[in-house]
């Protein structure tokens, strides 16, 4: 591609400059999914639309291998999932979502991608899909719910194994709108620490306000 100067920081994931700006792309044999540009065989990953995109563009590394098994809780219409599916092109991406409208659009993605297994269900009830999802290497959660930490842990209890990693995005206001966000965050981290080794945490500024991410490893 003519103007793109970039490096592959992970399988199929490129970062570099294009029209004078630092940008993120995944190499993809598939058409655009949410109105993003496609330049050659690279799909631009818009950081304002995806928290994982923001994380990578900020230079943080959460490592995905191309043959990983990943469980994605709260995939919505599949913005982030579409790029993750490019990266783990030999793996499997189980995606759970309980809202019909975005999931309808997600299903278009699932029908074109061989590595996506769609599950229309409630992430707070892993029992219901316990006979579908296998033990996974990674659980990704972006659901903005009051009890999202408990939901995260429960899914690890069902589908985690020693060494599985997780990424959770927390919005202080969805957990407790009255309390100081910093207090909420340290509470969340403390809760997670009894089950996980915390690998990294931070904000998503300037792309997403009022959010933190926590990258962790399951102790089992």
């Amino acid at each position: 591609m003519r103007d793109f100067q970039g490096t592959e920081i992970m399988h199929n994931l490129f970062i570099g400059s294009y029209d004078g700006k630092k940008r993120l792309f995944t190499k993809s044999g598939y058409p655009p999914h949410y109105g993003e540009r496609k330049i050659g065989d690279l799909r631009e990953w818009m950081p304002q639309r995806s928290k994982l995109g923001a994380l990578f563009l900020k230079g943080k590394i959460v490592r995905f291998e191309r043959d990983m098994k990943v469980l994605y809780l709260g995939c919505a219409s599949g913005t982030t999932a579409s790029h993750l599916s490019d990266i783990i092109d030999r793996g499997i991406l189980y995606c759970v979502e309980y809202s019909a409208k975005p999931f309808q659009k997600f299903l278009k993605l699932a029908m074109e991608r061989k590595n996506i297994i769609p599950i229309f269900g409630d992430a707070s009830k892993p029992e219901n899909y316990s006979g579908i999802v296998e033990k996974v290497d990674f659980i990704y959660q972006d659901i903005a719910q009051r009890n999202q930490v408990e939901i995260f842990v429960r899914n690890f209890e069902f589908f985690g194994r020693q060494g599985s990693e997780g990424l959770i995005f927390v919005k202080a206001r969805s957990i407790d709108s009255a309390r100081d966000p910093e207090e909420v965050y340290s509470d969340v981290i403390e809760k997670l620490e009894s089950h996980f080794k915390i690998l990294n945490t931070g904000d998503l500024l300037p792309y997403h306000k009022d959010h933190i991410y926590i990258h962790s490893r399951w102790r089992g």
């Binding site: 019909a100 029908m111 297994i117 229309f120």
Partner: peptide, 30 residues
């Protein structure tokens, strides 16, 4: 792991069968 038992039954077809069923079910429910 569900997939380990499944692959004994379906072999290499495991994920493609799972995916086909999952998509059909999801489409109907949605």
């Amino acid at each position: 792991s569900v997939s380990e038992v499944g692959k004994k039954t379906f072999g290499d077809e495991y994920y493609s069968i799972l995916r086909k069923v999952a998509i059909e079910v999801a489409r109907e429910l949605v």
